[in-house]
Design a protein around this nucleic acid. Structure first.
Lengths: 240, 240
DNA sequence: CACATTCGAGAGCACTGCTCTTGACGACGG
DNA sequence: CCGTCGTCAAGAGCAGTGCTCTCGAATGTG
């Protein structure tokens, strides 16, 4: 008789069921993504759920919307992994150790979720333009890395680099980013961090996309070595 | 009457027509690739040629074989661009200038051929494994970059870096590559060059795959700045 | 009881890669 | 000259895709 559960109005319980449906769709879609790459099939997802393909459209208006949801989830999962790796380093003054830990976490997450990583950082899906809502989630991971540099600057472990090394337009672009996310950080330091972050992305992609095949076998050691080289470039001091 | 052209046997003229067919298919496929990304449609190519889709299979046994042909062509086109950029630098002793020129050429080629670049360096096509024949073509571009370092070593402009900085397994992996392509080059120098090459790939991919959108507007200056940072890491001296 | 909303089912459209069969054409050997 | 053979394009067909539309069955609300 009562149209509610524990006093919830009917609308709310329906919304709950709907949310669970959406979650199940995303979970299955993620598994399919992992199994056979970016060409995600709505029909296959529907089949696995025992539904008819058209029913999926009750929950996601299009395949692109489902992809967007998976992308946002992916950015957050990577951001979580990066943040966890950073906070797990007990010695907060060990900037180099924290940097290395975060980069390793990024690589590990990518190796564990190759299809999702490819969705986030690989070739864009043709005809799909990432909506604005993804950028906030995307910024989390680089924010962890730059946060390490900001910490180093605050404690005096990192020197303020010479700003003269930056071309004008680049400096103003970076200043905009800095003002939005890391107030007070010198542009030149942000630039070095960004270069190292881009290298980290490149190294992970290079390995994951098969460019290292038949060339480098000691993948993890090689990645760590490169990361240390980039830590040198940033000027991160050795542990101690 | 005569069944030949300029004395060519019939088999040869048939082979010629066949080669032209193959070239036309590849040209159209490349244009389609550029227009709408990696999901290349054989039927659309056939339609544009005024043929029926099944006829394409006379020339390429599968879509994957066509992709492989395009990939190999792409690696060679990029390799050509890199080599041309290097040889165009008149002052052969200007290692930094040559490095910058090659990296810029790589970026320019990628921006001019985004779909082909994505095919070469982006997320691997699901269910498609790049055959061995692609690796030789793929090696050409990094070979140009490392060649600059080899030149610098030969002229004494570059110092032999301390080999102790390399972990053992990485060193032996790199030694294998060195022995195959750059005999005599110290592993540590090869390692620095590889890191810079991977960063170059990362920076181009980052820009091309949209990760810079809304963040950096001065794309070219930013790329050049990063490239100079990596040149510093390698130890390339300033021009002069 | 009547109404509106929500949802799944099914048919259908236009598209894909790929296979198989059929028929046309030209070059060769007997 | 006729038959054979290889090459090629065409067409039908299979199984799959994203997506739209309509319909019927619930379910909760007035």
């Amino acid at each position: 008789m009562c149209a509610t559960i524990a006093g919830m109005p009917a609308a709310a319980i329906r919304a709950r069921a709907r949310a669970e449906m959406i979650n199940e769709i995303k979970t299955i879609a993620r598994r399919h993504l992992a199994a056979e790459g970016a060409n995600l099939s709505l029909r296959a997802v529907a089949r696995e759920m025992g539904m008819v393909s058209s029913a999926i459209y009750r929950y996601f208006p299009s395949r692109d919307e489902l992809l967007t949801a998976l992308i946002v989830d992916g950015y957050h999962a990577l951001g979580d992994a990066a943040e966890a790796a950073d906070t797990e380093v007990a010695d907060r003054a060990d900037l180099r150790g924290r940097w290395l830990a975060v980069c390793q976490a990024i690589r590990r997450w990518a190796l564990s979720n190759p299809a999702e990583y490819a969705l986030l950082f690989g070739s864009p899906v043709p005809g799909y333009a990432a909506p604005q809502e993804t950028t906030a989630a995307a910024a989390r991971t680089p924010a962890v890395l730059i946060g390490i540099l900001a910490d180093g600057l605050a404690t005096g472990a990192l020197a303020r680099p010479d700003p003269g090394e930056l071309p004008g337009p680049v400096r103003s672009d970076l200043a905009t980013v800095r003002d939005r996310l890391f107030p007070g950080l010198p542009e030149a330091l942000l630039a070095r961090g960004a270069t190292a972050w881009i290298h980290c992305f490149g190294a992970v992609s290079f390995e994951l996309f098969g460019q290292l095949n038949g060339v480098i076998e000691a993948r993890e050691e090689y990645f760590d070595h490169q990361t240390r080289q980039m830590a040198d470039l940033i000027g991160l001091p050795d542990a101690g």
